[in-house]
Amino acid sequence: MIMDEIDKKLLNILQKEFPLTEYPFAVVAEQCGIGEEEVLIRVGRLKKEGIIRRIGAVFDGAKLGRAGTLCAARVPEDKIGDFVRIINAEKGVTHNYRRRNEYNVWFTVNMATSDKLDEFLEHVKEKTGVTDILDMRAVKTYKIDASMEMVS
């Protein structure tokens, strides 16, 4: 999808300064110099195209006591399909990528407790036969900000 300057400006405002007010899109419309209706049409299109995944709250999992980790698994080529299917079926798995390394499948897991996370990884090892899974927990967070500035 081709995005024009207004779309990019909208994306920046919607990511960084979403107005928590009764009529947020009217406020954004004023900032962009277009009408509220046009904002809703443009945002609807950006969402339909999948560029916007959602507009909503982003919570701090660590502050809520949740347990998260980054795992790297060494998966034989012929087992990748099954392994990915089993991993992805767990809703606590939020990101999963194939990467260029002998540890070829990298995924993040988020669970209510550390015990549940351990249990999940044990379950995965048992079910897939893939036992070389690194569990690398964050001991210090320097940055989490997945918003992306759109520039022209």
């Binding site: 995005m3 995944r53 997945a146």
Partner: peptide
């Protein structure tokens, strides 16, 4: 929502993009 933001339980409120689709 404002209270949760202020307490830092909510990190931010706004659009979450699909990075690769956003370019």
């Amino acid at each position: 929502s404002r209270e949760l933001l202020q307490k830092g339980i909510m990190r931010r409120f706004g659009a979450v993009l699909h990075h690769s689709k956003a370019g």
